[in-house]
Structure formats: structure tokens, C-alpha cells
Nucleic acid binder design. Structure first.
Lengths: 361, 361
DNA sequence: CGCCAGATTGTTATCGATACCATTCTGCCC
DNA sequence: GGGCAGAATGGTATCGATAACAATCTGGCG
């Protein structure tokens, strides 16, 4: 059994980049080292393949000794399976979306699929570019946030012939699978809940741009419901471009109260802006909720910790990720069988906390 | 010029997964459609290659018409360049690290390199697994967080022969490149600054486990400095496993004050725990900073918005990402030329805010 | 007019694994 | 004992692009 000696790893500095040895190490060499064919080595790496336990053991020892690392880029070419799932989120700095990303990776664990993550910065054009970049890697499925895409993006996705899951909202025209909830109805529920507690004069903070469709939906849910309840036209303030920061939440609440000083309760497009608004109010000596009640959306960690704790809508962010990945796996499992394009609704619920406590008033 | 007709895209549902057409579309077919060779099509996709403008235009029109999307997995096999950079962070839900990730992707934009992101959950074994998973994709470089890795991980990285950048701290034994700062010195600076303002009885909240080496370094920086300043043994509380949550910050400050009621100022391993601590104190009717001063680490958005705003160490998270990616690009540029393994120090600074204001006392 | 540099395009081999089919071997059943 | 199923393994073509080199064409210059 003739073999390259296992390379000693002193003086490893400097030769990095050159690599020297690693570069050349291939499955065939492992095979030669063990005295089997490359095909058998390939099989040893997969759990389903038929290789005798003894052979597999010898191969794995050789792999260890030589320091061989499987090359998936070669494998995926011949097997026509890239082993990738692509996911696009608006922002990774937003813990709602990174929870979703966690849900995806956690579900993908042990499936042999890897997540390729990208962030769109809330911009459809950037999304389009990213979709193309992702498709070039031939992902086996793709998870998107929202249902608003450019025409070219839709065309590319359609052509790609892979399962697509849109998340976090219910698109008018779903591409394929959907895992999400109605942002408009969720916000509506919050309005009704607070109205039932006696609140009458509602204000709203959050943009209306096409960039953040979920934000727009929440806003329209707010306006519609305030109208329906006969609580006059809603008082809504826009501020900055999505995502609205904590700081902008603070600025917005000031403008809103300047314009409509008798506002009783302010709903915000997200907990982050709600937090900013609350802190700004406190800084200005207002009491929350005694002088002004404030609520958010998303149930970020901050909302339960904040003093006062923040009333919000809890969204199952992590669950959205898990479900989306699960739908994708289902679809891949089903292979060609047309699994009907389904809409998986995820739950949300109002979480009443100190920031809108009525008794305190 | 004979060509497949551009597929009409009605009734696109249901045949998804089957794909029907997309699957087969290859560079050779685009070439046939245009009447050139596949090689020319390949060249048309790269900006440096020599193709006449007219030919490129015709090719790109065909690409559009047919809906062809480049297949990088095939390309990377023959070019031996995967187009990937791998990056591992402890958690993507932590905005400090997601800022770093943003810095990396932003720097990689337009280089033709794509980021493959993974999170280790602060666990070295998970890091090892991820490193292997990443190396199977043959990344051209890899960015790690911290300098604590398993032996096998180090061996794999060494063998891989690609540039490695460790970030966010200064490892004892760097693998290759380093972009970071001394967490211990940063914390030390914060202690000294607060001591110079008259604070004497220091407390500390933050774990000591090997999981979070940056946290441990901050802690030891704290203890050492308190000692050096002759301010008696530091009062340090551990709580939970990293990452310490806001809630745990609240619990920890309670234990700490129970045990050492006369503590004047509490430093926390991160702004998140500091925020939790502050909110818990307020909930219990203590005033910050009048009754107890509290500081954090990391300068998260929350700290400038919070009321009171939180004294902290500002770290250039985004810059760490940019620099790390830049070092990687340098190394790739240099090719084999041994670019000395360098340590790039990134800045940090104390940001004094309301939560430790001395006058208020 | 002939030749050469540079631009443009084509041909062929190859990257490293896996699919597919063939082959060998073992043990069991009728 | 013959035959056959099933396990274990090997041989070869192939995935879809690109590297490397060859071929062709163009214009300019001596």
C-alpha cells in the first residue's frame, strides 16, 4: 500500500494560499490509498449507499489520515443537486427576520441542505439581482420574504422550476407556496383590541412606501379598522425609509403629538419604533401609558423587557422559518408530483402589556 | 436561425418542480441559438474577456429571450474558483455580528464573490462542523469570529490552503490574518474611565464560559483592572449561557445587588444585558444612574435611544466586516505571494451617556 | 505586397465527483 | 447441485462550464 505520507504541519505559515498539498487531494487518491475505487469512496460518504461497514471504516480512516474534504461542487454537478436552499430576507439586522433565518437553518439541519442567505435591503431591484445570483448556484428551492417582486424576478423564478416559498405575508398572486399571515388583519386585531379597552383617538407611525409591503399592509389595516369603528380618520405619520429605526420612532411620535395633541394611543409599524417613541416620550417627561399609550408590532425581545413593557403583536418568526423550510422539503420530497400551491397560515396574537394599560390612566 | 420558441408563461402552476424546460437550458444551446460557440457565450458573461461588443449584445439578447441563467456550479469546477467566501459568526440574531456580516457582503459586492454565512451558536464543536461543511464548497477564503477553535478545525483550515481571517478579538495563536481588538483592554479602558469619574465599587455581569471567549476576555479585563486600581476584588456575577439575554441581565443585577448592596456601578458584558439590568432596576423603583450606574458594551442602537441612554464601548462592527473582507481580497489578489499574516486593529471608544452620569448622583 | 501584432472566435481536454450499468461473490432455497 | 436474489464493488460516461491553445481575421507598417 503505497501512499503519500501524512503531511507534517509545522511551519504552516507562509505556504498558505499556495496550499501546496491540499489542492490536489482528490477522491481518487483516497481510493488509491485504501485500495478501492473512487466510486466506493464516494459511496462511503453517503449513509444510504451500500458499502460494507469494514470498507467504510477503512476509507474513513484514510480520509482522516490524509485530511481529505469532500468536494461538493464537483458532486453537485454530476448529481444535479446543488444541496443549496436560497433565502432572501429584507435585513439580517432585524431580529424578526434573523429568527426566521434560524428557523430555516434549524429545519435544514441533517437534510444535507445548506442555506444560502441574502438580504435585499427592502428593495425589489436588489431582490431581483440577488435572485439571479442565487439561481446561478442552482438552489433546489428558494424562500422569499413578501410577495412583491419585479417582473423579471418572477420570470426567472418561474423558469427555474424549483419550489418557491413566499413568507411573512399573503401575496395577492402567490408564485407557489406561501407561509405567512395577513399583516393588515393582525394590525386590525390590535386596533380592535385596544378600542375595546376604551381607546378612541388612534395615531399610527410607519411608512407607506412600496419598499416595505408588510409595513404598508399594517398601515392600511390600521386606517381601515379605525374607519370601520367610526373613530374618525386615523392619524398617521410617515417617517424615513424602511426600516424605521428606533430613533425615527422617537422623532415621529413628537411630530404626531404636535399635530394631534389629544391622541390617546399610538400604534407603530414595529416594536423598534415603538420603543424609540416610548423612550422619547419619557425623555420629554410624558408618562407611558398614563399620558400616552404606545404599542408596537413583532414582539421583539426588547418589548417584554422594556419598562414599561410594550403591547405588541406576537408573530411566530421562528415558526415561519421552520414552516417555510418544511414546505420546501415537502415539495422536494414530492418530486414532480404537483403538491398544490398551498397557503400555510402562521399564528399571531395580541400581547397586552404595560404600555397600553388602561387602568393606569 | 432555428430556435426553441420562447416559452409562454401562462399556466405555470403545477409544472413547477418538473421544470419542463428550464432544466435543460445550457450554454451550448444559447450558443447554437446565436450561432456562435459555447466558449464565446462563456466569454460574453465576463467583462474582461475579449468578445466584440456586437457579439456580446447578440448573445445577451438571446440569454434574455431564452431566460438562460449562468450555472456557476459547473463553472467553478473547471475554473477551480468557487466564488464563495465563508463567514462564521456566533449568532445572526445579534446585531453586532450581523453588522459585521453586512460589512463583509458590502465589501464583496461587485467582486463576484458571494458570502456563505453560518452561525456557530457560540459552540466550538458546531464551528468545527460548519467549517467542514463550508470547506466542502471550496470557499476561496474564510472569516471566523474569535480565535478559539478545535484542533481538527485548525487542521482542516490549515490543509485547505485558503486565507483565513479571525475577527473580533486578538487570538493568542493567530491562524493567519486577524481583524479585531483586545476585548480585555477595551473593558479595562471603560473601568478606568469610570474610576476617573469617582466610581469605586464596581460590579460586573457576564459569564466566564469558554463558549464566549470575548465575554471571558472582557470579564478578565474588568477583574484585572479593578485590582490594579486598588479597588478591591471585583464583584462579578455569572448568569446563564452565552449569549446573555436582556432578561438575564435583569436577573443578574438583582443577584448582584443582593449580594453587594453598596455597589455603585455595574458593567455588563454587552448592551443587551445592560439594558435588561437598567429596566429591571427601574421596575424596582431604583433610579439609574442616581441609585445605581450601569454600563454596557457594544454600542447597540438601543443604548443611544434608551432612557437613560447607556454608557458603553463603541465597537466598529461594520468596519470589522469590511476590513476582514478587504484583508481576504488582498490575500486573494496577492495569490501565492505570502502576504505576511497581519493583525489589523480596529478601533473602539468609550461612549459616556446618562446611565453613568456622575453629576446626577 | 508581405508580414506581424492584436483582436476575435473555435476546438478539445478537463475539473472531481456521481449515475448507471456490469461484474463478482455469497448464501440460501427448492 | 443449479439457480437466483441481493450485497459489494468496479468501469465508464457524464454533468456544464472554462482553461489552454489553435485558428482566423483585420489593419497597419515598412
Amino acid at each position: 500500500m503505497k501512499a503519500e505520507p501524512v503531511k507534517d504541519e509545522d511551519e504552516s505559515k507562509g505556504r498558505r494560499l499556495k496550499g501546496g498539498d491540499a489542492q490536489k487531494l482528490t477522491m481518487a487518491e483516497v481510493a488509491k490509498y485504501v485500495g478501492v475505487s473512487a466510486m466506493t469512496v464516494s459511496r462511503a460518504f453517503r449513509q444510504d449507499a451500500s458499502v460494507s461497514e469494514e470498507t467504510r471504516k477503512r476509507i474513513m480512516e484514510a480520509v482522516d489520515a490524509l485530511g481529505y474534504v469532500l468536494d461538493l461542487s464537483a458532486g453537485s454537478l454530476s448529481s444535479r443537486r446543488s444541496g443549496f436552499i436560497a433565502a432572501l430576507v429584507p435585513s439580517i439586522n432585524n431580529s424578526n427576520f434573523s429568527d426566521t433565518a434560524r428557523g430555516i437553518t434549524d429545519t435544514l439541519e441533517n437534510t444535507g441542505l445548506q442555506l444560502l442567505l441574502g438580504y435585499t435591503d427592502y428593495a425589489a431591484e436588489k431582490e431581483e439581482k440577488l435572485i439571479e445570483a442565487m439561481l446561478r448556484r442552482r438552489p433546489e428551492g428558494i424562500i422569499l420574504t413578501g410577495g412583491s417582486h419585479t417582473d423579471r424576478a418572477r420570470r426567472m423564478l418561474d423558469k427555474a422550476g424549483i419550489p418557491v416559498v413566499e413568507t411573512w405575508e399573503i401575496p395577492e398572486e402567490p408564485i407557489n407556496h406561501v407561509v405567512g399571515f395577513s399583516n393588515s388583519e393582525a394590525m386590525s386585531l390590535l386596533v380592535r383590541t385596544l378600542a375595546s379597552q376604551g381607546y378612541r383617538r388612534f395615531g399610527y407611525i410607519g411608512g407607506t412606501t412600496a419598499r416595505d409591503t408588510r409595513g404598508s399592509q399594517r398601515r392600511s389595516g390600521f386606517l381601515k379598522t379605525v374607519e370601520e369603528l367610526g373613530l374618525g380618520p386615523g392619524r398617521a405619520i410617515s417617517f424615513g425609509v424602511p426600516p424605521i429605526t428606533m430613533e425615527q420612532g422617537g422623532q415621529a411620535v413628537v411630530s404626531l403629538l404636535e399635530r394631534w395633541p389629544d391622541t390617546e394611543v399610538v400604534l407603530c409599524v414595529s416594536d423598534l419604533s415603538a420603543f424609540g417613541a416610548i423612550m422619547e416620550c419619557k425623555r420629554r417627561g410624558m408618562r407611558v401609558p398614563e399620558d400616552i399609550a404606545i404599542a408596537g408590532f413583532g414582539d421583539y425581545e426588547i418589548s417584554s423587557i422594556c419598562h414599561p413593557s410594550i403591547t405588541t403583536i406576537n408573530v411566530d418568526c421562528y415558526g415561519i422559518g421552520r414552516q417555510a423550510a418544511a414546505r420546501l422539503l415537502d415539495a422536494l420530497q414530492a418530486g414532480g408530483e404537483a403538491t398544490g400551491d398551498e397557503i400555510t397560515l402562521t399564528g399571531y396574537r395580541v400581547v397586552l402589556r404595560e404600555s397600553t394599560e388602561r387602568g393606569a390612566r
